[in-house]
Computed example of a mutant assay.
Amino acid sequence: MKLHEYQAKQVFADAGIPTPPSTLAKTADGVVEAADEIGYPVAIKAQVQVGGRGKAGGIELVDDAEEAREAAESILGMDLKGLHVDSVLVEGAVDFVNELYLGITMDRGEGKPVAMVSTKGGVDIEQVAEEDPDAIVREHVDPAFGMFPYQARRAVFEAGVDREVATDVASVLRTLYQLWADNDATEAEINPLMVTADDEVIAADAVMNIDEDALFRQPDLVEMEDTSAGGDELEAKADEYGFDYVRLSGNVGIIGNGAGLVMTTLDLVDHYGGEPANFLDVGGGAKAERIANALDMVFSDENVDSVVFNIFGGITRGDEVAKGINSALEQFDEIPKPVVVRLAGTNWEEGMEILNEDLVTIEKTLEDAVQRSVEYAQEVDA
């Protein structure tokens, strides 16, 4: 479960992490009223659970009431990466001299939580990790003991944080770890943690995602769950259908049966120069109706330019999958996006014979299927 920025900031502030003054608003009048009360300049930030809001026009810095109203009318109601914006956070602007990144997540390779610190805050941490991995300091934590003060200090100093604020940053890092542990979070991030000219540190953004399997232990957080139309409608639809689904930022839709198989497909899409649009696991024993529902979901994502099916039949039968694909696609006068199918395992040959080649492209190997789907997506972008 993902918290909105304003919700995560409230959790952080309650734990003692400094945050800017802010107010949630749903109308232009509410935005102006909140901005007048906070004092200009203010940032107006779309409250949708997606990254890159600033680049997509979802964050604006304004200096007076007229600009605040214009920004509110522009952002409220906009479609931001497929999500409808129905509320904004009006927040006091921070006059900063430096931006840091702090994050806590689980390092599955090490089997331990890991704290991350970087002086390259304010940009996508994935971009930093790719372009300059040494700019991110990692400190693994034994969950039996929690984060010791010396670990937080070591991570902060190794990252090169200025001595004037290092103690405060280390304190925020320890608090962030404790919030991560206490709230059964999968991720907790501050990006950026801003440093002011007066050597104050302020969390200008906040991310906290909660492990859905642990929600029974977090009743207060459950009450924060966004079930409105402003949330991710595709993920809501995935819950309705009973799929394991994660929306990503690319344009190659991926459908498979089994988490490992889907992850392999994601990796291959990336390997062949494409960008995955989603993780969608239909599970074992998928019948025709379930396959049709999966296609409906992926077609509903406006970012998807092509779809690749990777189905290995164990419990799932290839002929049932083929019937589901045909059934879903036959509903369209024109196929909205090219579909590439690779079947293997139980009844795969029968499935291949059933598939309507006027509706799909069939490939015998996973590598060929992924390459073809990436090519289709790139042709759309060209």
Rank of each mutant, 00 (worst) to 15 (best):
residue 47 Q to L: 08
residue 41 P to L: 08
residue 48 V to R: 02
residue 16 G to N: 10
residue 20 P to I: 10
residue 65 A to H: 06
residue 56 A to W: 05
residue 62 V to C: 05
residue 48 V to Q: 01
residue 51 G to V: 09
residue 90 V to S: 05
residue 89 L to N: 06
residue 91 E to I: 07
residue 42 V to P: 00
residue 101 Y to W: 11
residue 28 A to T: 07
residue 77 G to W: 13
residue 46 A to M: 04
residue 76 L to F: 12
residue 52 G to H: 06
residue 52 G to I: 09
residue 95 D to L: 09
residue 48 V to I: 13
residue 43 A to M: 14
residue 48 V to P: 02
residue 21 P to T: 13
residue 75 I to Y: 02
residue 22 S to F: 13
residue 27 T to L: 09
residue 85 V to N: 06
residue 54 G to N: 09
residue 61 L to D: 01
residue 46 A to R: 00
residue 46 A to H: 02
residue 102 L to I: 05
residue 24 L to C: 00
residue 103 G to Y: 01
residue 67 E to S: 13
residue 26 K to T: 13
residue 102 L to N: 01
residue 88 V to Y: 02
residue 76 L to T: 04
residue 79 D to W: 04
residue 24 L to D: 02
residue 41 P to R: 01
residue 102 L to F: 05
residue 91 E to Q: 14
residue 17 I to S: 06
residue 35 A to Y: 07
residue 83 L to A: 12
residue 23 T to F: 12
residue 46 A to I: 00
residue 67 E to N: 09
residue 94 V to G: 11
residue 50 V to E: 09
residue 57 G to E: 10
residue 63 D to F: 14
residue 83 L to T: 00
residue 64 D to M: 07
residue 39 G to E: 12
residue 96 F to L: 14
residue 63 D to N: 15
residue 94 V to K: 04
residue 104 I to P: 02
residue 48 V to A: 10
residue 50 V to T: 13
residue 91 E to T: 10
